[in-house]
Design a protein around this nucleic acid. Structure first.
Lengths: 215, 215
DNA sequence: TTTAACTTGTGAATGAATTCACAAGCCGCT
DNA sequence: AGCGGCTTGTGAATTCATTCACAAGTTAAA
């Protein structure tokens, strides 16, 4: 009767979610070009995967296609938005107003996809009270108080590695359940808190390894 | 007889390489604190994995530990540096001198780990000729010429999504074999070119999914 | 209607990564 | 020299992810 994203019966692999996110981007591109329908094969080619993979990924959540025809572009896009939880606005705080924090604060992609940045936090008195684009930089001492009042969904960490764990502890203590970490360090958090880490050093070392160990 | 990083007989999984990179970071931390020896169990606890995983990861490259004792911290760190190809200097060019490109150009972590940034490239006349910290911003028209002369190992892409594929084609055409991509788009490159993509939108959507589908 | 050309959705088969579990080796103590 | 406590290295077992392969459904055209 209602069109809730299907219940996630079994745990969905991270790799699957990343691909869904990629499919949605392609669909939006196709949508923009007025295409009404698309096959798993075309979606696969665009995303560097296989059509079976595309169909399997979608099958975890329901069956959205028409045999012989493919998928309705707008419908599938809508379903993916539902599945990924993009139907609503997510509130973000950025902790750390250094170079990377500032670059993120100005990144257009966030707003476009329904992520709205409430504020950035720093401990540098020079920065506190100023604005990044139109995002206020606040004193990190207010962090817990503000989080309890404004209830952001996601904390983005762009503090030095040494401070990252302590910031995790602080935001977790006031109820934040999702963290995007840019500090090059392993973080520990309770099981009900999702942490994703973007680690440039690690990516570069992956490239270094690939360049070194080629046959 | 000689201590080359062991030949990579079978293909090593990406996840393994990422963990090796993490282990190295922990070892450097332990090294700094004067610890001489460490067990797979301690390494695992620090990295949020299991001791069997740590031992298996290392076993692909040789056997570096002493039964009953563990691993020599400095020796294992050295071996990991070898394996990851960090014994030498890697030369990088950044393509795109926007906010993110600029933040990366100033990121200390690169130099610390032996990655040296030769130059950044942009098509904006306002930026060309200036410097980011001490890194020159050059005209993107010179890209191929400069690459052929200076032979960078890695190209870091911080251009808009629409331009990313064309930059890939250009750098690949003059011999670049490793690309770190920050544009939120799927890139296609020949099999002998390694491409790693850091996609913030995708990470955020992963968090959105996790927040939405919790039981 | 029937047929031909497509394409989905999904069990079953395969392949890949992780975990188990234990023999083998090392150290220090007696 | 022998014993007890530890810890590695690794085949075997298990779990997880991807690919195969095909029945079933859809469309369009004759």
């Amino acid at each position: 009767m209602n069109s809730q994203a299907a219940v996630s019966v079994k745990r969905i692999a991270d790799s699957t979610v990343r691909r869904l996110s990629a499919y949605l981007r392609f669909l939006e591109d196709f949508e923009g070009r007025g295409l009404m329908t698309i096959s798993s094969e075309e979606l696969a080619k665009r995303g560097g995967t296989t059509s079976a993979q595309v169909r399997k990924d979608l099958s975890f959540f329901g069956s959205f296609g028409k045999r012989g025809l493919g998928y309705s572009v707008p419908e599938l896009a809508g379903r993916l938005r539902e599945i990924l939880g993009l139907g609503r606005e997510w509130k973000i705080v950025i902790v750390g107003a250094g170079k990377i924090g500032a670059a993120l604060a100005q990144y257009r992609g966030f707003r476009q996809r329904g992520f709205s940045i409430l504020a950035a936090y720093d401990n540098n008195p020079e920065k506190i009270g100023r604005k990044l684009e139109d995002i206020p930089v606040r004193d990190i001492d207010q962090l817990e108080r503000d989080i309890e009042r404004e209830k952001p969904d996601i904390a983005v960490l762009t503090v030095p590695a040494e401070e990252a764990q302590s910031v995790v502890n602080r935001v977790v203590s006031v109820g934040v359940k999702a963290i995007l970490n840019f500090a090059p360090t392993q973080l520990h958090a309770p099981a009900d808190v999702t942490v994703k880490t973007v680690n440039m050093a690690m990516e570069l070392e992956g490239l270094s390894f690939a360049l070194t160990n080629r046959e």
